[in-house]
Nucleic acid binder design. Structure first.
Ligand SMILES: [Mn+2]
Ligand SMILES: [Mn+2]
Ligand SMILES: [Zn+2]
Ligand SMILES: [Zn+2]
Lengths: 141, 141
DNA sequence: ATATCATATTAGACATAATCTAAATTTTTC
DNA sequence: GAAAAATTTAGATTATGTCTAATATGATAT
């Protein structure tokens, strides 16, 4: 894939481009899904260089802190990660737990009255329900 | 507090009213916040009857499954719980991690095109930023 | 009131996810 | 090239949550 874009992303977050960190970022950018830290660890270690578990966690934390990667908390399961490419919302399946991207659209902000002195950085919209795979078979019974 | 309302809630969820389960539900209904399972366990055990850790988790799972309680997943921390009273959204502070209720308002659903065959059960809106306590001191400098 | 039985509770073992530690390595700066 | 800073690492440790299987109990029927 586009190694230059990946390196540029890391530079933008003021993060050194180490082989291990590059591998994590590259995996997230090339991969549409929402892998867990364990899945990322396994994936980047299928190819060299070998990266330790601690380093995978460290790099994910750094990438999230730099704003390049988003962490998605899911109830009862390990956190999931995705590269912050295009803005999007998320759909989480009640049954299989899969996290899917949904087309982004602007969300109305709360009234300043209900907001008080809080400062909103972002509005995140999460849809829950049944994904295509888990929903009722179309046109059945 | 209103013991009858609590019992009615449990009955509505087809859950037996045991002292341990009642204590969990009562704590969540009387308490505005968003406690963790560990906090609930500690709180209900400050008064008798003593409830085991396993039972606290079991009852929280049952209450969530029955739709009486909501579980809020927060990145990097233990799950939090609140009784589903009035509908509301949530605000999560970037700095202190506190979860606060926000006035509810209807959220526009995704277009049926982007939704595909998915079935949406609910739309959850989460605001992130700085809470009143963590924001810049008002009228400072 | 008593019997019945599905449901609930329990202690503690177990599992999983994530963080911490401190030594070694790599990269950057001077 | 030496010194400083950032990164990696294995393995220990912590945090959170689940499971097991023996025991107890609430709800219902009699
Ligand atoms: Mn995503
Ligand atoms: Mn709430
Ligand atoms: Zn699904
Ligand atoms: Zn705060």
């Amino acid at each position: 894939m586009d190694a230059v874009a990946i390196k540029r992303s890391l530079a933008g977050g003021r993060l050194r481009c180490t082989p291990q960190r590059y591998a994590v970022m590259a995996f997230l950018m090339e991969h549409g899904g929402h892998p867990t830290a364990a899945e990322i660890f396994e994936a980047v270690n299928r190819v060299d260089p070998r990266s330790s578990r601690a380093t995978t966690y460290n790099n994910l934390r750094d990438l999230v802190k730099a704003g390049l990667v988003r962490e998605v908390a899911v109830e009862g399961r390990a956190a999931r990660f995705d590269a912050k490419g295009m803005r999007h919302h998320h759909f989480i399946c009640d049954r299989c737990g899969n996290v899917e991207d949904m087309e982004w659209y602007d969300v109305p902000r709360p009234t300043s009255g209900s907001l008080g002195r809080r400062i909103v950085r972002e509005c995140e919209l999460i849809f829950r329900g049944l994904c295509t795979k888990c929903g009722p078979r179309h046109a059945s019974r």
